[in-house]
Every structure is written in structure tokens, then in C-alpha cells.
Design a protein around this nucleic acid. Sequence first.
RNA 1: CGGGGUGUAGCGCAGCCCGGUUAGCGCACCUGCCUUGGGAGCAGGGGGUCGGAGGUUCGAAUCCUCUCACCCCGACCA
Length: 476
Amino acid sequence: MAKNITPRNEDYSKWYTDVIIQAKMADYSPVKGSMVIRPTGYAIWELIQQNLDKMFKETGHVNAYFPLLIPESFMEKEAEHVEGFAPECAVVTHGGGKKLEENLYIRPTSETIIWSMYKKWIMSYRDLPILINQWANVIRWEMRTRLFLRTSEFLWQEGHTAHETAEEAEEETLKMLNVYKKFAEEYLAIPVIAGKKSDSEKFAGAVHTYCIEAMMQDKKALQAGTSHNLGQNFAKAFDVQFQAKDGERKFVYATSWGVSTRLIGALIMTHSDDNGLVIPPKLAQRPVVIIPIFKNDDEKVKVMAFADSIFAELKEEYNVIMDDREKHKPGFKFAEWELQGIPIRIEIGPKDVEKNHVVMVRRDLMKKEFIGRDVIFETVKKQLAQMQVDLLEKARIFREENSFNVDNYDELKKIVTNEEGFVYAHWCGSTECEEKVKTETKATIRCIPFDREEEKGVCICCGKDSDRRVVFAKAY
RNA sequence: CGGGGUGUAGCGCAGCCCGGUUAGCGCACCUGCCUUGGGAGCAGGGGGUCGGAGGUUCGAAUCCUCUCACCCCGACCA
């Protein structure tokens, strides 16, 4: 089944692309490295936005919009920042048919433009904290791109906050990381490891970077969200000071945090199968499809009457699709809606009408079950909730089965080079050891996880003392 | 930027080595009939500056030169 989709075990990355193209989630645009997000894909993004936005508001944040174009001089103010981003920026040199006095960068992220504005807005401790988020597009000139995972232009949200103290900034950074973790697990049904990035993996200009990391079905790691404690680096670069209660002038403390359309790639690579997309119910704009089946007018009248009543009942709460197209046979429709990842399919034929039941199939289980007419609504509700839970649990089990505690270097090397999963190993904290592992095995330290207990050991690389394990894996 | 590959209908390809009817096939699309419990069938139909430029030749999708684009694999990244 599922023609046009390469099976996962044959070629995982081909499978990934096939699912996206066949499910009409996205398409290649005329410009290399950028993509068109089609309605099926964008519907998922809309639900990501709506639900995350709600969580941001609940934690006291407000939305704003800062412009796309950034003066070149701004980029140069924060040394680490410009070093980190300059090579991957698109730059506008002409406007109105003339060469510009000053080049304009298309934002790769908005720290600089935002901090130039915060300088104007922050005078006193009474102006703090500032808790602003924006939903925007950004451009990073990537060398190698992949649909949703890495495109030159992508959609994201970036939160930028300003605080009186270092403690408040740290608290905010972790609070938002937790929001991401909660969202990933409750909505995307993707189990994630929350932790801290090593110095070499942290954001250009940050003091600390925290992240959530997920395991994809090919056992590689994908960073699904980041939260940065920027300390006073941007405040100093943009001279953002405030007068404290005690009258003293101080630099503010900053954070920034973001997730992007990459989450859609994570969702695909976590749940989907060889039949196509699988969408967690909470992110399915259209969670149910009804497929009536009949072969003559007589049957049609009976089946449609039955189907319409069910449609009307479910429509009260769900955005149900009634697929009554007569030019396609049922088998075609089954395959098509499976490809699109619709969580629940209801089949209604003459035999079902007679027996006063329907056939219901959950996208993740693909098993047909008869459901009595009077319990359809509650069964849909129950199954959608259960599917949401099951997807997360299935992914969690998969991750645990492919995570290993490792205490010798050869074994680490064997596991990561064979792409067998995540390796929890001791690390002394030095960049040299991290670098060595990276060059020899291509695995990076994904994060220093929060939820692991401290444990005495020795660095897998140099043998020095270590008090916790970190996660090594090949990453996207 | 290195290594490899591909450009022929919307998509996927054959034809090219060895030049010669009106450039072909599958899918998709349109019309009609017929069908409907896992991607139906039949009949008819529309759609091409063969990536671009130049050259060789009586004649080029095919041979030669140049050029452009894209894809895959490696060095950067959410």
C-alpha cells in the first residue's frame, strides 16, 4: 500500500520528503532552499501558534512586531552575535534602484533591532520586566536545506524579555523552556529531554542556552526548541540601562527563546509511518473523516441519511470531513486520508446502516472496529484523547529503548556511528573532549540533561572526574 | 567550495551510444459509459520552443563547444 512513499527502512530521508510532498504539506519554491507551506502543513502550524500563544499569554507575555530589515551597524554591535550570524545572512544592498547608504540585513533573528528599541523604552526599574514575543519569518542562508527542518526562510516565534536581575532572567529562561517541554509533550506528543547546551553549542551572544531535544524514528536527535539567558551582553552592546530603586544605573538582563516550523518536521519524524502522515489529535484541524459507501441510489439514500445524522452530531464539536465524492472509490479515499494523517476515519456502508453501527479506524492503530450508533460521539472523543496519549507513550518507549548508559569510548563510538540512538556518558566539561568526540564520531553533546541525578564518574574521553552524564547523539 | 548525478507534457521516465516518418510510455488532467467495504475498468481527448546559446550536417532530443538550473554526498546551522 501507500504508493509513492518510500518505506522508512529503505531510505529514511526519502520517506520524510515523500510524506511531505505526497500529503501536500509543502512544496519546493522556485528559490533554492525555500519552501511553500501548503494548507495541510500550515493548518498544523496554525494550531501550534494558537496553543503556544495561549501559553505565552498565560505566562504574562504580549505580542508585538519588529521589522524584517536590520541596519548593518546593528549586527556589528554584539561581537559574538555578528560572528555567529554574519556568514548566513541575506543582505539588501539596493533599494529604489540605488545602492543603499547602509546595507540592510534581513533578520536571522531579531535581538539587535529589538534591543535598539528597548534602549528607548527602558528608563527605570518601573519599566521592567518587558515580556514581548513576536511571530515572524527569518532568513538564514543555509548550505543544505530540508523541508521544514532547515529552510532558508522559516516561520517562528521569538520571545525577547528584559529584567532587573540575573535571577529573574534565569528564571524566565527556564520557565519558557518548560513551556516548550510541556507543549512538545502535551500537544506534539513528542517526549523531549530538557537540558543545557555546552559552550560550543550555545547561541551566539548568550550566557547559557537551554534546549529540548527529541529522538526521531531514525534515532537521530532533533533540537525542538531553545531558550537563552543572554545576561547583560545585549544590554551592554546596545547600552540599555535603567535606574534601580536605589538610584543606581544598571544594565538590564535579557532572555530570548524560540521554536519554529521545524516542529512540524519533528512531528512528522516522530509519529508518521509508511502510509503517510500521522497527526496528534490536538494538532489536527480536521480530526475526523466520514466515508459513506454505496453502490446504487437506493443504498445511497439510506447510507447518506445515516451518515448525515452522524456528521451533524459530530459537527457540534469537531471539524468533520464528509467525503461524499462519487468519483472515487472507498479504497482510494481510505488511502488518501491516511496519507493526510486524519486521526479518525468512520466508514459507513449499507451493512452498517442495517446493523446500526459504523466502522471506526484510528490512524495510528489502523484497526477497524464496529461502534454502535449511540456511542459514536463519546467513542470519538475517547479515542482522540487516547490516541494523543498513546502517541506520546509510543515515542517515549522508542526513545528509552534506544538510549544507553555508556562508560567506555569504543562503545560510544560504536553506538553513535551505527546510529543506534542516544548515549548517556560522563563528560569532564572541556571543549577539547567535546571536540574530539565530535570529530571522531560525528556525535555532538545534545545537552546536559536536567532530569538526571548527579552521579560520580570519569570523562569518557580524558578520564578526568565528572559528576553527571550528558547526552551524545548524531543530530539533524 | 570539492565529489557524483539529472535536465524530454503537471509529475515520473524511455528514446541519445549508432543523427533520418507526425518525439513516445506510465500516472495525473478533460468527456462519456460503467463502477463503489482497501488506491477500479473501457472508449475518446487535450497538453512538448526535448534546460539555454552557438556549432557540425541535406537533416540534431540524439554529435561537438559553451552556459544555466536543480538534486544527492561531504565542510555551517533552529
